[in-house]
C-alpha cells in the first residue's frame, strides 16, 4: 500500500503563518501535523482546535482547515472541555503558550487534569511573553533578563509537565524543538490516549527571549536545548541542584483512569434510568 507523502499544506489554509523567522512554532505545528498524518487522518474534520491568546494560539486559528475556537487569554481549556463533552466523537486539541496555559489559565489547567477532561493540550513553552514583547513568564528560568526583569528574573519557574502528571493527567510529556521526532511520537501517543493529554514543547523565541538572554542565533538556542536536556529516568538519580539548569524531557505519566466524558455520560444514563423508574 502506498503511503501518501506528508504535506502540511493539505491541512492548512492558503495563508502564511505570521511567526518570526526561526520561531519554534513552525516545528511544533509540523510535529503535530505529521502526527495527524501518520495516524491516517486525511483532513482535520475529526478535530476541533481551541486556543487562547499569544503567538502559539495562532497556530490553528485560522491556519488549519478545520473548526477553531480562538478564545480569550487563558480560557481555551474550559472551552475545549465543554466542546468535548458535547461532541465526544471529535478530537479536541488546545494550542497554547506557557503564559496562556500555566500563567493566566493555570487554574483551568490543573482542574482539567484533575477531571481527566478528554482534551489534548499542546503547550509551546518559549519561557517568555513573546507576543507582548518579552516580559518575564512563570516559566522563565531564574536570573534571565527580560523586558520586565532588567536585572534578571528572581522567581522560580513552573514545571508544567510534572504538574499535569501530579494533577491527574492521563498523559504528560515534555520535549523541546530540538527533539522533533520525540515530540511527534508523543503527540501521536497523546492523541490516542483517552483523558487529559499534555505536551510541553520547550521552544525558542529568538525575538523576545534569545536576543535579551544572550543567545547569538537560533542554532545556539537549539544547542542549549540539546545539551541541557536530560531524560526523566536519568533525572531521578540527580539532585535538585544538579537539575537546576537542565530541561527534563520524556514522559512524566501515562495512565488509564475514568475520563470526564465517561463519568458524565454514565451519570446521565443513571439519571435517565432513575427518571423512568419514578
Amino acid at each position: 500500500m502506498m503511503v501518501e507523502a506528508f504535506s502540511p499544506r493539505k491541512y492548512m489554509r492558503d495563508l502564511k503563518f505570521p511567526f518570526c523567522p526561526g520561531c519554534g512554532l513552525f516545528s511544533v505545528s509540523d510535529a503535530f501535523l505529521r502526527a495527524v498524518h501518520e495516524l491516517g487522518y486525511k483532513d482535520l474534520s475529526k478535530f476541533v482546535f481551541c486556543s487562547g491568546i499569544g503567538c502559539s494560539s495562532w497556530v490553528p486559528s485560522p491556519y488549519y482547515i478545520g473548526d477553531s475556537l480562538h478564545t480569550l487569554h487563558g480560557r481555551s481549556i474550559p472551552v475545549a472541555t465543554s466542546v468535548k463533552l458535547v461532541r465526544p466523537d471529535l478530537n479536541v486539541v488546545v494550542f497554547g503558550g506557557d503564559g496562556d496555559i500555566v500563567g493566566i489559565g493555570l487554574g483551568h489547567f490543573i482542574h482539567a487534569a484533575r477531571r481527566n477532561a478528554d482534551v489534548l493540550v499542546i503547550m509551546t513553552n518559549n519561557m517568555i511573553y513573546g507576543m507582548t514583547g518579552g516580559q518575564v513568564a512563570p516559566t522563565t528560568p531564574l536570573r534571565t533578563k527580560t523586558t520586565t526583569t532588567p536585572y534578571g528574573s528572581f522567581e522560580h519557574p513552573i514545571d508544567a509537565a510534572r504538574l499535569a502528571a501530579a494533577a491527574g493527567a492521563a498523559y504528560s510529556a515534555r520535549w523541546t524543538t530540538a527533539h522533533p521526532n520525540d515530540l511527534r511520537k508523543s503527540i501521536k501517543k497523546a492523541i490516542q490516549t483517552k483523558g487529559f493529554g499534555f505536551i510541553e514543547a520547550v521552544s525558542q523565541c529568538p525575538t523576545a527571549y534569545g536576543r535579551r538572554a544572550g543567545f547569538k542565533d537560533i542554532g545556539e538556542m537549539l544547542k542549549w536545548f540539546k545539551e541541557s536536556a536530560i531524560a526523566v529516568e536519568q533525572s531521578k538519580k540527580m539532585s535538585e541542584k544538579e537539575l537546576e539548569k537542565r530541561i527534563v524531557v520524556g514522559e512524566f505519566v501515562q495512565r488509564s483512569r475514568p475520563t470526564l466524558v465517561e463519568t458524565v455520560y454514565a451519570m446521565i444514563e443513571e439519571a435517565k434510568a432513575g427518571a423512568k423508574q419514578n
Binding site: C50, L69, T71, L72, G74, R75, I77, P78, V79, A80, T81, S82, V83, L85, V86, R87, G107, H108, H111, V264
Partner: peptide, 19 residues
C-alpha cells in the same frame, strides 16, 4: 458542569454553544 470558577463557567458555555 460545576466549574472551578466563573471564568471557566462562562467559557464552558461558549464552547457548548458553538458545539
Amino acid at each position: 458542569m460545576q466549574m472551578e470558577d466563573e471564568l471557566a463557567s462562562i467559557n464552558a458555555i461558549m464552547g457548548a454553544s458553538w458545539a
